[in-house]
Deep mutational scan, measured.
Amino acid sequence: MSIQHFRVALIPFFAAFCLPVFAHPETLVKVKDAEDQLGARVGYIELDLNSGKILESFRPEERFPMMSTFKVLLCGAVLSRVDAGQEQLGRRIHYSQNDLVEYSPVTEKHLTDGMTVRELCSAAITMSDNTAANLLLTTIGGPKELTAFLHNMGDHVTRLDRWEPELNEAIPNDERDTTMPAAMATTLRKLLTGELLTLASRQQLIDWMEADKVAGPLLRSALPAGWFIADKSGAGERGSRGIIAALGPDGKPSRIVVIYTTGSQATMDERNRQIAEIGASLIKHW
């Protein structure tokens, strides 16, 4: 067993022997301040990774656009098919120029040779490549099948209805392509620590998230040296922004954090800054 596999296998073990965790309302004060600064709703939840206990939450059962955070769930569904012998990570998928959609920095470079399922998941999570996500959605049967996968996990809230990039439209009061912070946090925890996926697939999923290259201005910008984070960000229309993450000190994750916002007129930089400040408060009061 590799060191990384050992780390993920012992996530519940280490967490069980940690000192009790206590909620700190100071972080919620910052979440509410972010709402004021952005002029928009902000949803927040913080779960203990081992027990699933909610440590703090704000608007945990209000719907927010998922945006690209759905790509972690998508690759979880792909990995479940791999575990069941219905898919192979090494299978190569070929596609054409007509398949390319807006923001496809990886797939646009491989029109000639195609990409493997493993490479597509890596591109979808680490670079948020939209064509990679659409190609992977095709392998599982489309958005409705991802929703069905989530329902089978016990998540009857999260739903995907459309493809990239239309799913980022974020129309107010439109339930399409949305989740709730509580539902997303619980589902992410199941994917990373539950028995739904094999140990190898859980490790692969967290490795992809740990290698995320496009979430630097968010929670990662607030992390002290030595902290662990595996995350996936999302951005959408109407001032929408979000991030889902597993993080913790001492090089291992111990909490799940989900943050979503929508309806702001603020710039992307300002949305990023507010999420980073929430992260800084979380870490300060850990």
Rank of each mutant, 00 (worst) to 15 (best):
G114R: 03
D113Y: 12
K232V: 00
Q204C: 13
I45H: 05
G216Y: 08
Q203H: 15
L160I: 13
Q88K: 12
A280K: 15
A133Q: 00
A132K: 00
K213F: 10
M115N: 03
R7C: 08
D174I: 03
Q86T: 12
S281A: 15
I275A: 02
R91Q: 07
L282F: 08
Y103W: 15
V214C: 06
I93H: 05
M66V: 13
V117E: 02
I171V: 15
R63M: 07
F6W: 08
N50D: 15
A215M: 03
A183N: 09
K284P: 03
L218Q: 03
A124K: 00
R118K: 11
I3Y: 14
G251V: 07
R63I: 09
H94N: 13
L136K: 00
S104C: 07
R81S: 09
P253I: 10
L199S: 10
D99I: 09
S2L: 15
P143Q: 06
Q97M: 15
D250I: 10
G251P: 08
L111W: 09
R7V: 09
E108D: 11
P60M: 13
Q274E: 14
W227D: 00
L223A: 10
M184P: 00
K284N: 11
T198M: 10
I229N: 02
H24W: 09
K232I: 00
K32L: 12
R189K: 14
M268R: 07
M268Y: 09
Q86S: 12
V42L: 13
N98P: 09
Q86N: 11
G216A: 10
E210D: 09
W227R: 00
T126N: 06
W227K: 00
R271E: 05
K32P: 01
D83G: 05
F70Y: 05
A183Y: 09
G39Y: 10
T126Q: 09
A230W: 03
L160Y: 02
W286M: 07
A15V: 14
T69S: 06
V214G: 06
E166L: 14
R271W: 03
F6T: 07
V72P: 10
M180Q: 15
L111V: 15
E119K: 06
A16Q: 12
A9E: 05
M127W: 13
G234T: 00
V82M: 06
V257D: 00
C75Y: 00
A124M: 07
H156R: 13
G85H: 11
A124N: 04
C18T: 12
M153I: 14
E175S: 12
H5Q: 12
D83L: 02
I54S: 08
E56G: 12
A15D: 02
S80M: 12
V101R: 08
G194T: 15
D207L: 12
H110F: 12
L79W: 01
M209Y: 00
L160E: 02
L223Q: 05
P65L: 03
R7L: 08
M184I: 14
V31S: 03
D174N: 06
I3R: 09
A133S: 11
Q88V: 11
E164R: 01
I278T: 03
A235W: 01
A23W: 03
I54Y: 09
S221F: 09
P224R: 06
K284H: 09
Q265I: 12
I45M: 12
P217R: 09
M184E: 01
R238E: 08
R159G: 04
A225Y: 12
H5S: 07
T187H: 05
K30V: 11
L19N: 15
W163G: 09
I140P: 00
T186F: 15
S122F: 15
P165F: 05
P12G: 12
Q97A: 13
L47E: 06
L191S: 03
P224E: 06
D174C: 06
R273V: 10
S57P: 02
N134Q: 05
E102N: 10
T112P: 12
V106P: 01
K213S: 10
E61G: 13
G248V: 01
G263V: 04
Y260Q: 02
G216H: 08
T131H: 04
K109L: 14
I54D: 06
G239D: 02
Q97G: 12
I229Y: 04
A276L: 08
A245R: 00
L247K: 05
F228A: 09
M1D: 01
A266I: 06
E56S: 11
R41W: 07
L19R: 08
D174K: 03
I243E: 03
P249Q: 09
E102Q: 15
V72K: 00
L111I: 13
G236Q: 02
V42A: 06
S128L: 00
L146D: 00
T147A: 07
P181S: 04
A132E: 00
K232T: 01
A222V: 14
F6A: 07
E108K: 12
A23C: 07
M127T: 12
R271F: 04
G236V: 02
H151V: 13
L218N: 03
S281I: 13
L197Y: 05
K32E: 09
L74P: 01
G52I: 03
A148C: 14
N272D: 09
T179F: 00
K232S: 00
D177Y: 01
A182S: 12
Y260S: 02
E62I: 06
K144N: 14
Y44L: 11
A280Q: 15
A133N: 02
A148G: 14
D48N: 08
V42Q: 01
T193S: 15
E61L: 13
M67Q: 08
V78E: 03
T178R: 02
G239L: 01
S2W: 09
F58S: 09
E145L: 09
T178Y: 02
I11H: 05
G251M: 10
S104W: 01
I244D: 00
Y44M: 09
D161I: 04
R273T: 12
G114Y: 05
K32C: 10
G52R: 05
T261V: 12
E270R: 11
Q86W: 10
L47H: 03
A84G: 13
N130C: 05
Q265T: 12
V8G: 08
R59V: 01
T187P: 00
D174W: 02
R41V: 09
D269K: 12
H285G: 09
T178M: 03
P172E: 13
T187S: 12
L73A: 11
S68Q: 00
A148V: 13
M1K: 01
F22W: 14
F64C: 02
T198K: 13
P172M: 12
E169R: 11
R220M: 03
G141M: 06
A182N: 09
G242H: 02
V8R: 13
I278K: 00
F13K: 04
K144Y: 13
I275F: 14
V106L: 14
L55Y: 11
A16E: 05
C75E: 01
S2R: 09
D174V: 04
G279T: 07
G52Q: 06
P143H: 08
F228Y: 14
W208K: 01
K213M: 14
V117W: 01
D83V: 03
K232W: 00
E102G: 09
T198P: 07
L38N: 06
D177R: 01
N98Y: 14
A15F: 15
A40N: 08
V117C: 04
V106C: 09
R63P: 08
A246F: 11
E108W: 08
E108A: 11
D174F: 03
R162V: 02
E210G: 09
L47P: 00
M184K: 01
A9L: 09
L167M: 12
Q4G: 08
E169F: 12
N272K: 02
L247Y: 03
M67R: 01
G43F: 00
T131Y: 05
H5P: 08
N168R: 03
G263R: 07
E175P: 14
V82P: 01
I283L: 11
L192R: 01
V106F: 07
S80I: 10
P249C: 07
L192A: 06
E195Y: 07
G236Y: 01
R255D: 00
V214S: 07
Q86M: 11
R7Y: 09
P105W: 04
L196S: 15
V29P: 04
E237G: 14
Q88D: 13
Y95F: 13
D155F: 01
V106I: 14
V82H: 09
A280S: 15
M268N: 07
L79P: 00
D174E: 08
A15Y: 15
I11P: 05
V42M: 10
Q86K: 13
D174Q: 06
T139I: 14
S122N: 15
